[in-house]
Design a protein around this nucleic acid. Structure first.
Length: 287
DNA sequence: CACTTGACCTGTCCGC
DNA sequence: TGCGGACAGGTCAAGT
């Protein structure tokens, strides 16, 4: 579920809430959600102080004073929600999507010295939290293979196009491939392809240079706008305070099948591309 | 190697 | 109201 803008929103929230907190306790109920030994956790996590919260692609890295890091992937339904000492009870003061914590999808709970807590919730159990020496984090498989950050200052249209041109398959499948460019998922693939008027089934070699250049700009614009809106919440995603993101209000095609295209009025349709639900305007986007 | 498909899980929604 | 099947925003492993 969470793509680059959602993970970045969580990162921003956590860096405001967690810096300087000392971990005093951890609980986990599902082994795959927190693999590794409890002895390691005791040695390198308990007593450690949170020093930074970083992001690469859709992965969060919470850096600890022990020279270990918590590396976290939310996958489809993961949430990282912070609760201060007084606010474990339901709902208020924020209009939270989720109420009392922990709940039945809580997989890992971190407790800090001041009594506050960080909950890792994950309905579908695809996500994970791993404790690794900070120096070893860049060596994990995923980081070895993942492509560049699309919003990096030095990531140019030329870089983007060169990476896409190495592939021959449908443009949407290529955008979803994290080794080409990092952080794009189903929502922003559909939104950016609509904005650039490219059909998701178009093969990369069949797409003009100028359209790919336009796609580069539209993709970055869509990602930036979503970060500004706190990401997209369809079902599960919430930020570090448990609040929903509002980007889907601004989405042009995603989850809008049956509604008129904001550009030409044609009815938006849904199809399947690369095994994912895909939303297009059949008039603006042609193969 | 590039590319596609199924697996990992739980929950919800839709049609009968 | 109950039940089966399709589907849900992401990656992996294993297949061609």
């Amino acid at each position: 579920m969470p793509e680059l803008p959602e993970v970045e929103t969580v990162r921003l929230g956590l860096s405001k809430l967690l810096l300087g907190k000392k971990v005093t306790h951890i609980e986990h109920d599902w082994p795959k959600s927190f693999p590794g030994s409890d002895a390691d956790a005791r040695a390198h996590l308990i007593g450690a102080i949170i020093q930074a919260v970083n992001r690469r692609a859709k992965v969060l890295m919470i850096e600890l004073s022990s020279e270990y890091s918590l590396v976290i992937h939310l996958k489809m339904t993961g949430q990282l929600v912070f609760r201060g000492e007084q606010s474990f009870g339901s709902g208020h003061p924020n209009k939270s999507l989720i109420g009392e914590l922990p709940d039945k999808s809580t997989r890992v709970t971190f407790t800090f010295a001041d009594g506050s807590k960080l909950f890792f919730n994950d309905q579908r159990k695809f996500g994970w939290v791993r404790l690794l020496p900070t120096v070893e984090v860049p060596a994990i498989d995923f980081f070895q293979k993942v492509g560049p950050e699309p919003l990096a200052d030095d990531f140019t249209a030329k870089d983007f196009i060169a990476r896409l041109r190495k592939r021959k398959s449908a443009i949407k499948a290529v955008l979803l491939d994290q080794t080409v460019v990092a952080g794009i998922g189903n929502i922003y693939a559909d939104e950016s392809l609509w904005a650039a008027k490219i059909h998701p089934l178009s093969k990369v070699p069949d797409i003009s240079e100028s359209k790919l250049k336009l796609l580069y700009h539209e993709l970055r614009a869509v990602l930036r706008l979503s970060i500004a809106k706190g990401g997209s919440t369809d079902k599960n995603y919430v930020d570090a305070e448990g609040k929903r993101g509002s980007y889907l209000t601004f989405a042009k095609v995603f989850r809008r099948e049956g509604q008129p295209c904001p550009r030409c009025g044609t009815t938006i349709i849904k199809l399947r591309v690369a095994g994912r639900g895909t939303h297009i305007c059949p008039r603006c986007q042609r193969v």
